[in-house]
Design a protein around this nucleic acid. Structure first.
Lengths: 161, 161
DNA sequence: TGCAATTAAGTTGTGCGCAACTAAAACGCT
DNA sequence: AGCGTTTTAGTTGCGCACAACTTAATTGCA
C-alpha cells in the first residue's frame, strides 16, 4: 500500500498546512453555526433541531433510525434532541405497531406550521455566505466527497510506518 | 441593499438545497473529527487539543487570548481545555508578570516531545480525504472566504422583509 | 421450538462550543 | 489621584457529538 501523494513535502510544512486545512473546516462549520443560531432564534430551534425538522418536512414521519441515517447521527444524539423537540410541541414520538423496537417521529400541527417561518431561512443563510450558487455547489460537492471518503476510509492509509 | 442572487428559485427548492448544503458542511466537519479521533488517540489528544498544540508548536508560548484569536475560540472553551492539557502534563500556565490579567501558556518538555509523534498525522489525514493537493487548497480557500464573510456578515442581508 | 445474534432506542459520561456572567487587573480621562 | 470603562480569564449552564453501555424486541438458524 503506497503512500498517497505528497511525496516531497516535509513533515514540518505539512504540520503547518494541517493546522490551516483542518482548522478551516472546523472554523467554517462553527461560523455557519453562529449565523444559523441568529436566524433560527426566532423559530426557537437550534441548528441540529432545524436539520431534523428539514428531514421531517421533506420526508414525513420517520423512525429515529432513519432520521439518524439521513443526518449521520446516532440515537445518543437524537434521543435527547427529539425529546426536546417533543417538549417544544413540534413532534410526537410513538412506538411503531409492527416493530415495537422502532419509534416513529411525526410532526405535530405546530411542527408543520413552523415550516412557513423556515421558508425564508435558506435565502438569508445563502446571502450571508457571500458565495455564488456555483461556488456553493462546488463546495458542497467537495465536502460530500470528503465525507464519503472519510466515513469509509481506513485511517492507516498513507501511514508509511 | 438588494437581495443577493437566487431570484428565481422557489423557497421550497431552497429548503431542500439548504438541508443539503448546511448538512454537507456539518457532516464533513464531523467526519473529519472521526478520523482525527482515531489518529490522535495514540497521542492522547482530542482534536481541539491538537489544534492548540499545533499553535503552540508553531508560535511558542502564548497568552490564552492569542490562542483563542488563532483558533477562533473564547476563554469559555479554552480555559477548561487548557486545564486538561495541563493535567496531561503538556503545558504550563502562568500569570504574566507585566500584565496580571494575562495567562501565558507554555509547552512542557512532554508537550514539546509530543510534536515528534504528531509529525506523521497530517499525511494520514490527507490520505484519508482522498483529495488532491489542489482540491484541498481549493476547499480551504472556499471555506476561509465563507468563514470570513459569515463572521463579519449581517444575517439580515438578503432578508427581503 | 428455543436460543444466540442482531437491531432500535435510550442512558451515562466526557469533552467541545458558546452565551451570560463574575472577578480582577489595566487603562483612560478628568 | 480617583473612578468609570475596557480587557483577560475563569465559571456556569445548556445543547450537541460520540463512545460505551443497557434494555427490549426481532430475527435467524440449528
Amino acid at each position: 500500500m503506497a503512500t498517497t501523494a505528497l511525496p516531497d513535502v516535509p513533515d514540518e510544512e505539512l504540520l503547518r498546512l494541517d493546522r490551516q486545512v483542518c482548522f478551516s473546516l472546523n472554523a467554517a462549520s462553527r461560523a455557519f453555526g453562529g449565523v444559523y443560531r441568529v436566524v433560527l432564534q426566532e423559530l426557537g430551534l437550534t441548528y441540529p433541531q432545524y436539520l431534523v425538522m428539514l428531514v421531517l418536512w421533506e420526508h414525513g414521519p420517520l423512525p429515529v433510525k432513519q432520521i439518524g441515517s439521513y443526518l449521520r447521527l446516532d440515537s445518543g444524539t437524537l434521543s435527547p434532541l427529539l425529546k426536546r423537540l417533543e417538549a417544544a410541541g413540534h413532534v410526537r414520538r410513538e412506538r411503531s405497531a409492527e416493530d415495537e423496537r422502532s419509534v416513529t417521529v411525526r410532526l405535530t400541527d405546530s411542527g408543520t406550521a413552523l415550516r412557513e417561518q423556515a421558508l425564508h431561512v435558506p435565502r438569508r443563510i445563502f446571502a450571508a455566505t457571500g458565495l455564488s450558487l456555483d461556488e456553493v455547489t462546488a463546495l458542497q460537492s467537495l465536502l460530500d466527497r470528503v465525507t464519503a471518503r472519510l466515513d469509509t476510509g481506513d485511517p492507516t492509509i498513507g501511514c508509511t510506518g
